[in-house]
Design a protein around this nucleic acid. Structure first.
Lengths: 336, 336
DNA sequence: CAACTCCTCGGAATCGTTTCCGACACGGGC
DNA sequence: GCCCGTGTCGGAAACGATTCCGAGGAGTTG
């Protein structure tokens, strides 16, 4: 505890050279092999490790990148993290995690704190977009990539998917599998994904010539318990033969509710989830789910950010990952 | 892009005061309200945000804490992260995540890079312990808390559980529920948790007067697919009436294997998992699982680390969280 | 009214690096 | 033999904050 870490000065003294020479030798700017050897020996002798902070101050780079999402407990974000982290590592970046709990205030704080320059870049997954978001995204202090829908005119690198189309695919799949009273257990109505999925659901109904029945729609947070409770309310008041859950957690909650109500999946009621997370693959019965390419989106976001950090110029890019249905055993349909 | 961020000097100039006064005003060291107001006004005028890096250099604190584990995809670690992050936040720390992929080399690198002082502390969850770990833990550059078993004599703050006892509880529960041919699908044999669980399994058999039959033991990585394959191998060669999976992922893999083999859970074969993650609660049937208090352990580790960072002196502490069985529907037992 | 205390503020040093710049040595070409 | 280009190394100035210290003014006390 008492011994202060040696600095570059101690190394210089031990090697009998100047600190500039030490710095150069360590950063491969020295061609004289004897000098390099001397410095390396001194480094080992005093046990020197360069201070990341001092380097950051001088070089104006931190080697850190932040990923901000609602809740790391959501497997969709997890899939992104698992894809992002290795890529960052490869380029020598460390990953900082912000779980904002979908709190708008927190997200804004994250965006505004970028000006503190504690990271070199940010990947942000907002589920609500406010005026303040847009203002903060106008001229971020460091490169930012947003995963998710953005209003037109916001000029930020962006990776998105089409969850509206995804929701429509889910409905059409259920219709093709024979369902006629298709319910939606949606996420919160004031979130961007919630609105997109609702719209897609309606679009799907229209495409299948099914009537719109608002009693077949329920809302819940994007969580298992909330999904179970919402589905239970739904089952209480309506007769359904299929449920589309706005994400896998909700869908699994719905399956639990169905089970409690003594309805079997998929024989009595078919269920489709969304995000195609590991939960879908491991549930019983395995859950048919609309993949929104979480891993792909994470990977793309990481790549775009790294490109910017390498200095790539140009206008904001946008990549879109199409949704795709993964048919498992919670529906009676056939794979597309 | 072109405009450089304003520094404390710009603020000082705009306010017509010295940089020391600006610093004091912003850090609440100034009692003159007029001065504070002037500085605040200047801050807003030039749009100043202090540089985290420069502050870190001067104060020798980064406000960051790292959490290193095998794989963030494992819900047990996830539970820890979810418990750790809010506590750190409360004390103003940010969380850095290292997923090491159980690679010893990576873990060592994380430990050694602490000397770079890019974080103020570390929570480490190793699943293998090598000589190099022990050496690196001897005198870490910043406070470290280890979650998991440690050899005697390693003098580090430590939070552990007793997964050996947990495994024994699982076996005894299965025995009480009528199982007699109890299989173990373990994790890798060279990991600390793998060894502990194996030992606890044997202990449990002994306590129930059941014979040891090594054909009832299989090994797999701590993953669903690996668990499924291992369980399939097991079912091929042996007749079992219960499977204890060394974690929930393995246990769920085993349930899939059983399902493919046409055996029902819990009627034909009972299954117990370990870690009591969200996967256990959401699977069908819900999985009986041994809780190792992941959340608690994460919370304790965070608290211990924060205490050290607040300057708490004294010898290395050790906390132990006891295992507990959560009985669900994959077994026919009754809650303890 | 002088002397002393207390407080506020500004100047300058400091944290630990990287990098610019100038000094000096050396070798080659005329 | 002189001059110039090339290259290596050391000194010192950054990077952007915090904080020590000393100067000066205001307020108290004898």
């Amino acid at each position: 505890m008492a011994a202060p870490r040696p600095t570059i000065h101690e190394v210089a003294r031990a090697a009998g050279v100047s600190i500039s020479s030490v710095s150069r030798a360590l950063n491969g700017q020295t061609s004289n092999p004897e000098m390099v050897a001397r410095v390396k020996a001194a480094v080992d002798e005093v046990g020197y490790v360069p201070s990341a902070v001092a380097q950051s101050l001088k070089t104006q780079q931190t080697g850190q990148i932040a990923f901000a999402m609602e809740d790391i407990g959501n497997a969709a974000y997890l899939a992104m993290v698992r894809e992002i982290q290795p890529r960052l590592r490869e380029d020598g970046y460390r990953l900082l995690l912000h779980a904002t709990g979908a709190d708008v205030q927190d997200e804004i704080e994250v965006l505004e704190s970028l000006a503190q320059k504690y990271v070199d870049g940010l990947v942000l997954c907002p589920i609500r977009i406010t005026e303040r978001h847009i203002a903060a995204l106008r001229a971020p202090a460091v490169p930012v990539v947003v995963i998710g829908q953005l209003p037109a005119g916001v000029d930020v690198d962006n990776v998105r998917t089409d969850s509206r189309l995804g929701a429509r695919l889910a409905v059409e799949h259920l219709y093709a599998a024979g369902a006629r009273r298709i319910a939606l257990v949606n996420g919160p109505a004031d979130t961007v994904p919630g609105q997109a999925r609702h719209a897609g659901y309606l679009e799907g109904l229209a495409a299948c010539d099914l009537p719109v029945d608002e009693t077949l729609v329920e809302f819940a947070d994007f969580q298992v318990d909330a999904g179970r409770e919402a589905a239970a309310r739904l089952l209480d008041r309506a007769d359904v033969d299929a449920i589309f859950g706005a994400n896998d957690l909700i869908a699994i909650g719905a399956m639990h509710a169905l089970r409690s109500a003594g309805r079997s999946v998929p024989d009595d009621v078919q269920v489709v989830g969304m995000d195609d997370t590991i939960l879908a693959a491991t549930s019983f019965p395995p859950l048919t789910s609309v993949s929104l390419g979480s891993r792909e989106r994470g990977g793309l976001a990481a790549d775009m950010l790294l490109a910017r950090l390498r200095g790539e110029p140009g206008a904001a890019r946008r990549e879109t990952v199409p949704p795709a249905l993964t048919v498992r055993e919670s529906t009676r349909g056939v794979a597309a």
